[in-house]
Amino acid sequence: MAQHKVNYTQDGGLPVALTSIDKIVNWGRSNSLWALTYGLACCGIEMMASGASRFDFDRYGTIFRASPRQADVMIVAGTLTKKHAEFIKRLYDQMTEPRWVISMGSCANTGGMFNTYATVQGCDRIIPVDLYLPGCAPRPETLQYGVMLLQQKIRANKAGNAQKAKRLM
């Protein structure tokens, strides 16, 4: 049998890593944020660009899923109209916990330039939002930075399944 010439006392030698449950669970969660494909308007184009080869969201472990049941984070990319409001709530409810929401762009944040009767004045009226990205539309770099901030937020939290109470019925 071959003798491994490994000095277990040197750095990286000991094949054991100690950590806490919170850290390892959050490590997994934050590095595989699967996003719901949810382009509502022009921000959706930037979101697609973030996922495509030039900006490459896969580097963060963010893969777009077409089903809310497989998604961890909902990126509300675009104008949320009042006609569509019930569907965003339905999709959000179908996502499994823990789940996060990024409100991408001015329209999703506050209604933006659409100060009209047909636009929801901020998607946080319907669903709880973790992160607001400013911009019209935000660049893919902004969205990726936003996802990194969301990762930080996830890592700073406890790993328990019960989410902190957010403003929602």
Binding site: A85, N115, Y117, A118, V120, I126, M169
Partner: peptide, 19 residues
């Protein structure tokens, strides 16, 4: 005569319908 920012019904539409 329809207000640009919506009447009472429009302002509360999504809230009334969902919650």
């Amino acid at each position: 005569t329809y207000p640009l920012q919506g009447d009472e019904f429009a302002a509360w539409y999504e809230v009334d319908k969902i919650f």
